[in-house]
Design a protein around this nucleic acid. Structure first.
Lengths: 355, 355
DNA sequence: CTGAAAGCGCTAACAC
DNA sequence: GTGTTAGCGCTTTCAG
């Protein structure tokens, strides 16, 4: 059986296709009885209303916005910071009626979501520096909002003050007297795990957030004369982090404090300490980042740098809807650059340097 | 400046539009030098490749599948069972290159996502019985998979054995000697909070999962001669649940056990008990449902009925991709009805009836 | 209030 | 290899 389209209904009722279209889209453009008749026929024939794709083609808008995530979409549901951010986006989008499409930065079978999926705009949330996915989005000329990305004057951007937050964390351990500090960081390419010979250089190709946090740590630690060891972890899991922390802590002049890229990695540090029989914060201080709910679930509770992922999501969604409106009205996008504050939260996992 | 399309490139290079299309879609259909030239020109003119919407229209597929959630999209990022399910869906979809579009069951401004957003198929995950959103999807004739919904032979369905799980929970408290039992349940319309006069009748319009769980509870409790009080909560939060539990526990012949629709509600029960100075499980047993990570985070740890939300997501996504393939090949959809087992997990929150 | 014309940007099928 | 034809299903003018 052939597909039911506007034309089918039009033929059946004996009017033009246009009148049927109007019956669905502009009720005031035709007589009530006519409209009734058309709607009834549509119903009888099993017509659901205008096809979304065809409508999108002619209208130039799809009713959905995308969020560009890493290659691992599930990350958006597993990581507390990501879910918090996305929940805010969903909340903020709710009154607009827009749907949310999760875009993986890596495609399969020649399908590249960033290039091939129809959306009206995209929140570039989580992708590495060399992301071709991001490049596609830019080339497509879609309204974009950069979240936690290297700012680009061409697009609104929303991020947190990672650099400052990292400085706060580093200053905290320096103030506590720590002079041998380990850094547990992620952000480089998958597969690169272990101690970094030249952290600043090594970090050059990393994603923005990682570079900023690392820079913040080092810019405080080095002037303070601290001995710094940096270990890179290529995953967000605390598993690999624990392993690297163990290596770090197994050396002769082991660090008395660990600064971690995230609370998840910090939790790995905690675990390593426990396995090695080190007490926290007696023998070792551990400072996380994000103030993930996890931070207060582990023992001891983590000293960490708080960010407000929900506020980030709200700002980002708002900036995107503004861009969408601007694009529709053919106005230039207003430049937006939101930098959300970060704040040190001192809990139980940090204390004076031993000895 | 006018938009760059296939035609723009074609004119510029001096070939037909079709050849340009082939350059992008079927590299083997034209000479290498020609292709080079076309691609170079496209690049120079800032052409990103075929427009997704136009391609979707002519190809009849969009590259995205939807998940129908409640009216509150953010729920999908906040509830642990939902995120677990969705993470599994994302993982399972990953090799297919399909994107995931979150559809709210309620629209705004005349936009109804279930009717107006272009997708190739939908996972009907979380919506109430009277969901018009679901009806739209059915009418559209989209490949659908029903998850935790009343099974319908027309569609593959995946769910857990809620009824059996609820029976296990009820039997557990009966075996422990409880004869006054409170039930904390959600699933009815928003706004209806409080004690139910006639639970079985009242539940008739509820969403499937709620009805099944309630039926499982009652089918064990009533034959056992227990006195049952049912309080309805209209949200997923433990806040309202605590309030209702307090009412329940404030009565003369207060229940010695509470069976909850979910761990979240059970946590509310725990809180109410604490506030009233009742010890758990000494004075009151509390049994949850889902085995949400929350279950082991609260104190005492919750006795609960475990479901495997991740497995549910995997099965659902698999069933959907199968339906998509069937639809594309114009084959009938193979009937699938997956019922995942539930299992009682006894922890610390349940014990013998007092006295 | 209704209809005719003119596409939106692209691709399947086939002819050259 | 490359071009032609014929739409996909709909909506935006604008004429009647």
């Amino acid at each position: 059986m052939a597909r039911v389209t506007l034309q089918t209904i039009a033929d059946e009722v004996g009017v033009s296709r246009m009148t049927v279209s109007n019956a669905f889209n502009r009720p005031d453009q035709l007589s009530a009885p006519m409209r009734e008749k058309i709607l009834a026929t549509a119903d009888r024939l099993g017509y659901t209303g205008p096809d979304p794709t065809a409508r999108a083609l002619v209208r130039g808008s799809t009713g959905a916005v995308g969020v560009l995530l890493t290659d691992d979409l599930a990350y958006g549901f597993r990581d507390a910071v990501a879910t918090d951010f996305l929940a805010a986006v969903a909340d903020e989008l709710r009154p607009t009626g827009l749907s949310l499409t999760l875009l993986s930065s890596e495609g399969r079978d020649g399908v590249v979501p960033a290039r091939d999926v129809a959306v009206d705009g995209v929140l570039v949330f989580s992708c590495s520096l060399d992301s071709t996915a991001r490049d596609w989005l830019v080339k497509r000329g879609l309204p974009l909002v950069l979240v936690d990305q290297e700012p680009d004057p061409a697009f609104p951007s929303v991020r947190i003050d990672d650099y400052h937050g990292a400085r706060l964390a580093a200053q905290h351990v320096v103030d506590l007297g720590h002079r041998r500090v380990g850094i547990l960081i992620s952000g480089g390419s998958p597969g690169t795990v272990g101690r970094l010979a030249d952290p600043r250089r090594d970090a050059e190709g990393w994603k923005y957030v990682s570079r900023r946090r690392l820079a913040g740590f080092l810019d405080v630690l080095e002037p303070a004369g601290a001995t710094v060891v940096v270990h890179h972890v290529d995953q967000y899991g605390d598993r690999v982090a624990a392993e690297q922390a163990r290596l770090m802590l197994g050396s002769d002049a082991r660090p008395t404090a660990i600064l971690a890229y995230s609370d998840v990695l910090a939790a790995g540090g905690l675990r390593a300490a426990e396995e090695l029989g080190l007490t926290v914060p007696g023998d070792l201080s551990v400072v996380g980042f994000d103030d993930n709910p996890l931070a207060t679930r582990v023992r001891p509770e983590l000293t960490t740098v708080r960010q407000d992922a929900y506020a980030k999501g709200t700002s980002a969604a708002r900036a995107l809807t503004a861009s969408l409106r601007a694009a529709k009205a053919d106005r230039p996008v207003e430049p937006v650059e939101v930098v959300l504050p970060t704040e040190l939260v001192v809990r139980e996992s940090s204390g004076p340097a031993p000895g």
